[in-house]
Amino acid sequence: MKEFLTVLIEDDEDDVFFFQRAMQQVDWPGAIQILRDGAEAIAYLTDAHSATDRQQHPTPSLVILDLNLPIRTGLDVLEVFRGHDDTTPVVVLTSSTSELDVRDAYRLGANCYFNKPSHPDGLVELLKVLKAHWLDYNRLA
């Protein structure tokens, strides 16, 4: 069985730092691939799906996606990704509270939608839940 690969698509350095720190705190398993803008994310995710680059870009096990990204938006990334892969879970983690974003995200195939907690402790709590849900209990395709 291949190693669990979490792809984090997040442009904010601080958020990346908080995220990595919280992951350590909850003992998040496997590898983490961080992508810092929408275009990079789309390139990685589409390449990852083609067989030739499988070694260089392993298929993600879980995608954690921010919506407010430079170059291409998170919703663009989601749409393109779902064109190639409709089984890997996508967790939207964003500061956007817009109802419209929530609807669009689910419509384009997100599996869940969270707002970024304003305190690091909140993020740790959230990652505990995500870990329990997606890695401990949930069966992935």
């Binding site: 601080d14 958020d15 908080f18 304003s118 305190h119 690091p120 402790d121 993020l123």
Partner: peptide
């Protein structure tokens, strides 16, 4: 976003 960072780093 930066506000969250401030809160975060303070924490």
């Amino acid at each position: 976003a930066p506000l969250r960072a401030m809160q975060g780093f303070a924490g």
